[in-house]
């Protein structure tokens, strides 16, 4: 991003009020990674930028490198994930993924896998299917793309395949012999579920039919794993998701 004017395709993952009529937009872009850009006058009714810089939008953006932030000078929305703004039940799911992506990605480094993962997950959430499974698959796959892939097959202590549960600090499944009190016990179905979610393409995730117990266990496992290794902090959208 050395040129003063540059273009990129991006997903709007957060917006904040900036000054009197501007918006500060957090974008996850295909080529430039995650960064913030200012959309001047985007809060005005007649702004030509307004409609393209709202969260849950995929667009082609033109930027001018400013002193503090890049300035968005042009936008062409390519896709709007309208289900998040029209359905109050879906809104927290889309927001959770946006917030998690914002927290997990630190700098302006391109990660097209993560970009496509968020794009695919937002699309999938607009269709029927188990939404919580899409979130769990996103968490596991995002960690993998960031280089923190959880070990789901062998115990890292002894190499055993007789798995009892998950050690968040180890970032791996653990056997009974290497067990510690703060590890998370998992049903064999949950272990298989975690493996499948990480292995299958995202669009196949909604075909899996796990039990409520397996989903609860996986949710605990993912939360503990992410908290230990990627430290996303307190996710504010989770409160709305849990309600």
């Amino acid at each position: 991003m050395s040129s003063r004017i540059f273009k990129d395709e991006g997903l709007v993952i957060r917006t904040r009020v900036l000054g009197e009529a501007d918006r500060l937009v957090t974008l996850l872009t295909l080529k430039g990674g995650k960064f913030e850009a200012a959309a001047r006058g985007a809060r005005k009714m007649k702004s030509r930028l307004a409609a393209g810089v709202d969260i849950f939008t995929r667009g082609e953006y033109t930027f001018h490198r400013g002193k503090t932030w890049p300035i968005i000078t042009g936008q062409y929305p390519k896709e709007r994930f309208l289900w998040f703004r029209e359905d109050p039940e879906l809104y927290p799911y889309g927001l959770y993924l946006a917030e998690l992506a914002d927290r997990l990605i630190v700098g302006e480094e391109a990660c097209p896998e993560l970009y496509n993962l968020l794009l695919g997950s937002w699309r999938l959430l607009g269709k029927s299917g188990d939404r919580s499974l899409i979130l769990r698959a996103f968490e596991l796959k995002a960690a993998q793309y960031l280089g923190y892939s959880p070990g789901l097959h062998n115990c890292p202590g002894c190499g055993s395949e007789q798995i009892r549960g998950f050690g968040p600090g180890e970032g791996s499944m653990v056997c009974s012999d290497c067990w510690s009190a703060d590890f998370i016990s998992l049903d064999s179905g949950t272990i298989a579920l975690a493996r499948r979610l990480l292995e299958v393409p995202l669009h196949q995730v909604v075909m899996i039919r796990p039990s409520a117990r397996q989903k609860n266990e996986l949710s605990r496992m993912n939360s503990a794993f992410l908290a230990y290794h990627l430290d996303p902090g307190e996710l504010k959208s989770k409160r709305l998701l849990d309600e």
Binding site: T15, A50, D54, F56, F84, R85, E86, P88, Y91
Partner: peptide
């Protein structure tokens, strides 16, 4: 008429 406003409207309607 933005995402927060629409989400609030949807929540209120429900």
């Amino acid at each position: 008429p933005n995402v927060e406003g629409d989400a609030t409207a949807g929540y209120l309607a429900r």
